[in-house]
Design a protein around this nucleic acid. Structure first.
Lengths: 340, 340
DNA sequence: ACCAGGAATGGGAGCGCTCCCACATTAGGG
DNA sequence: CCCTAATGTGGGAGCGCTCCCATTCCTGGT
């Protein structure tokens, strides 16, 4: 049989032992300043002696706050994306929450029905805030949550002018840095494999690519742009398309490492060497990048740091802190390997 | 001041609306059979009309159960391992819990201090059960939790005779299947790169390798066994060692895909072709396997299914269900690609 | 016709906290 | 010396449920 509470001490018992009232113990536990040193010490001792741990359920019920934060990840994305991405994100969020003694509630959302259930869940007041990963351009969930009065922070944004607080990486800078590197290595015909253009992240990287070319004085050529979908297969297909359209290309910026891997395979099929015939740059600096042959030059995003930042922002808002900058864009960094 | 926090309806209000008592509503909500059809219908209508959602904190407080389950992952492992592993595991656990309307509390444990905190957390009665991933041979945590009277299920086991309930994959079978394949392809000098031998999973795969050789009538040769640590670098080092000791080897069973990738790199360095000179088999069937050149034959573990099974077992135990088989070993499956 | 026994139900009594009000107690200011 | 204003403090009043007991209403057996 589970969980008959084995005589776990209560606030009341601590109070009795310390010779003070319930209120005082509560104040000490919650770090209120309105307590004398003497009382504080007495309570601290009683807590230690009894091994007291506050009952969270009671706290949540009485205080209507839960000390828990939900991280929502759409399941479809979890499969699609360079998977380690989410693990890194989780790691960052988890670290920051642990420091604040908050709990991480992970929610993978699979179906519309599960989404529904999640909204219900939120309505049940079970979390102090919500972190959203990988939100698509037309997703109403963020606004919905905000309207419910629950603090939200997103990873990435739905559009340039995102109204909901978010933490993003500098995707434009990523595209730019990749192109700059390619140009610096003497490449002249630089193509790109983009992500699905209904995602802001894909448009931003493409924008960076274009900006990079413009800065280098290259004329734009739409024939050098092919759309992928962040999958390996999509990368492969897009690469074939590019080779078909512009056989003379000598470099490719793939908007993700996984697509770069697909592109690499297509290049091999076509008998092109990397980086000899075609130089290749990806984005994510995921493990695949290191394992590819040749190892892939890639633009690193500070994923874990994004997770930490999101959690920090959320906690601050949940605590009702003074409104600070609700939009944060973290820098990316080119990691040079052998593919260019 | 009226505590009209967001005006969420309470059980009491539902009762009033349905024209029944609090007890009856509670019974309906919790699916007790002791309710007339009529009352059930009235309550159901009131619930729908009011959009009632039970307050979880109150439930937990009154009923001492939380509807939440913790999944504990040692942070060190999360980095080391083929990372998608944990994402798959999480996916399985999450799916099963969602079906049961339970919450998943993810805990990455970094330091000894965090471990400490986690135990405190358990003491605070905040979860109905605990799932443990990647437990090392000498880890006392599982027993500790069990002694606290909290249901536990582990992923993998610490030793052959694990006392704590677990779900594992058939690692011996995995080694055997890999070797059988290699033998079937006419390989005669089959080496292996193992994981760290203080982990049962590594010993089991090695055991399978040996069993496979024995079954094929090959004489054992300890020179064909090198120890890695489940990292790419470890795989590379072990492979160099093997080439050094037994240059005539013509096949390698690596106990993980990541190590296989390392081994592949070492083979390339040494000028050996795959699968021409040396055939290669890994374990995990991770994305890396597909992306390698040539694509890697690998033994797939049903990771997501393990996650589901763990969650299912845990929920059943938490519900005080009749003691069923507490040890479950799921089958593995060889996925053939070009590396052998 | 009567009563035992079961089914359905209402509602009191908490669960262990936080909130907040009332009550000291002490320290100045006039 | 009284009066206000801080400062600590105790404890009542819930928070919204579940548990469980008492009550009512219905069976069917004798």
């Amino acid at each position: 049989m589970s969980g008959r509470r084995g005589g776990r001490p209560t606030l009341e018992e601590v109070a009795a032992r310390a010779g003070v009232g319930r209120g005082t113990v509560s104040r000490v536990i919650n770090g209120s300043p309105r307590v004398s040193e003497q009382a504080r010490a007495a309570v601290a001792r009683a807590v230690a002696e009894l091994g007291y741990v506050p009952n969270q359920a009671a706290r949540a019920l009485a205080g209507s706050r839960t000390d828990a934060v939900a991280l929502v990840i759409p399941e479809a994305e979890a499969r699609l994306f360079a998977e380690p991405y989410f693990l890194d994100l989780i790691r960052g969020v988890s670290a920051e929450l642990a420091d604040a003694d908050k709990q991480l509630l992970l929610t993978l959302v699979r179906t519309a029905q599960e989404r529904q259930r999640f909204e219900q869940y939120l309505a049940a007041q079970r979390v102090d805030g919500v972190l959203l990963a990988s939100v698509h351009g037309d997703d109403p969930l963020p606004d919905r949550i905000r309207d419910l009065g629950i603090p939200v922070v997103m990873n990435g944004r739905r559009s340039e002018a995102e109204p909901v607080p978010y933490v993003d990486s500098d995707n434009i800078g990523a595209g730019r840095a990749a192109v700059a590197r390619l140009v610096g290595r003497g490449r002249r015909r630089i193509a790109t494999v983009t992500g699905p253009l209904d995602m802001y992240v894909a448009r931003a990287r493409l924008g960076g690519y274009r900006a990079g070319l413009a800065e280098a004085g290259h004329a734009p050529d739409e024939g050098l742009v092919a759309t992928g979908d962040f999958t390996e297969e999509g990368g492969r297909r897009a690469m074939r398309e590019l080779l078909d359209r512009r056989p003379e290309l000598d470099a490719v910026f793939a908007a993700s490492d996984v697509m770069a891997a697909g592109a690499r395979a297509a290049l091999r099929e076509a008998g092109r060497t990397v980086p000899g015939d075609v130089a290749l740059v990806g984005v994510d600096d995921s493990p695949v990048a290191r394992l590819m042959d040749p190892p892939l030059t890639s633009v690193r995003q500070p994923i874990e740091e994004m997770g930490r930042t999101m959690a920090r922002m959320l906690l601050r808002r949940a605590a009702g802190a003074p409104e600070e900058e609700p939009k944060r864009v973290l820098p990316t960094e080119l990691v040079v390997r052998d593919s260019c």
